[in-house]
């Protein structure tokens, strides 16, 4: 089984993140880059499926030179090889453009299954699986908390508020995963050493066959019009119990739509 896991390098979720005033883009330079957290679960699921079905896992990343750190980490976890789409002309591409680039590459390298984290911790749009599936003309099976493959039959549990739905599709397909699906493994030092010898193919914009005018910040379909700093924390609401504390607390929670 030929499995491709799409991995995005994002600024460390726990660091202070800011937008750049000049172009409203995320300041990635001043923060450590890490593998998007949900993508680690996608890698783990890819590795488990590959181990169970004698498959091969390819990591696909679009990003600047720095993204090679995340590729190395994914390879040290056990993935077999990687494709790195790297081109200055791609900087500032939005989700539509990114999906166009990734779909081109996926069409060329081929796949039985594409796995993604359900969303990234930076942009948090959660649309990439849908866009890729649409562009590739294959089923999208989203928010998987469990995945089973049997021949070309694909069955997942789709995470819902009330539990899960059972969803079936056939390969080839695109799936997105949630953190409930597994516990990602740590790399090992042996894995780090082995990763040095694994093939990483670099792909430029020209290699994808897309036109430079279609991608990048200037041609993006979406635009950040304005942004503001998060407002400072407000003081909390104090409920004084005068015999009706329970009712007041319940009213507060209902007002916040918690219950």
């Amino acid at each position: 089984m030929n499995i491709v896991v799409c991995v995005k390098q994002v600024p460390d979720t726990w660091a202070e993140r800011t937008l750049r005033p000049e172009d409203s883009r995320l300041d990635r330079a001043s923060v450590d880059g890490v593998i998007n957290e949900l993508d680690e679960y996608a890698i783990e699921e890819g590795l488990r499926l590959a181990e169970a079905h004698e498959g091969e896992v390819t990591i696909l990343t679009m990003g600047p030179d720095k993204a090679s750190e995340s590729i190395r980490k994914a390879l040290s976890m056990g993935a077999d090889k990687a494709v790195h789409v790297i081109d200055d002309g791609l900087a500032g591409s939005d989700a539509l453009q990114t999906s166009a680039v990734l779909a081109q590459v996926l069409g060329r390298i081929g796949f039985d299954l594409v796995i993604l984290g359900a969303e990234s911790t930076d942009a948090r749009m959660g649309v990439m699986a849908a866009m890729l599936a649409e562009r590739l003309g294959v089923p999208q099976v989203s928010l998987a908390s469990k995945v089973e493959v049997d021949g070309t039959a694909l069955r997942i549990h789709r995470q819902r508020d009330y539990g899960y739905d059972k969803v079936e599709a056939s390969l080839p397909a695109v799936i997105s995963v949630v953190e409930k699906i597994n516990e990602p493994r740590y790399p090992s030092f042996k894995g780090i050493m082995a990763a040095k010898k694994k093939p990483v193919e670099t792909v430029t914009l020209a290699d994808t066959g897309l036109d430079a005018g279609q991608v990048g910040l200037a041609a993006a379909a979406t635009e950040v019009v304005s942004f503001a700093n998060r407002p400072p924390r407000q003081a909390g609401t104090v409920v004084k119990d005068e015999g009706d504390g329970g009712t007041k607390a319940a009213e507060f929670l209902a007002g916040q739509k918690f219950i």
């Binding site: 190395r72 980490k73 740590y186 790399p187 050493m193 990763a195 040095k196």
Partner: peptide, 23 residues
């Protein structure tokens, strides 16, 4: 705070990253 280390190789840097993550 992450200690800024001079390391002799890229695999050493990756090893220290792994160690920090485990720690």
């Amino acid at each position: 705070m992450t200690v800024d280390r001079m390391l002799p190789s890229r695999e050493a840097a990756d090893l220290l990253d792994l160690t920090r993550q485990l720690a």
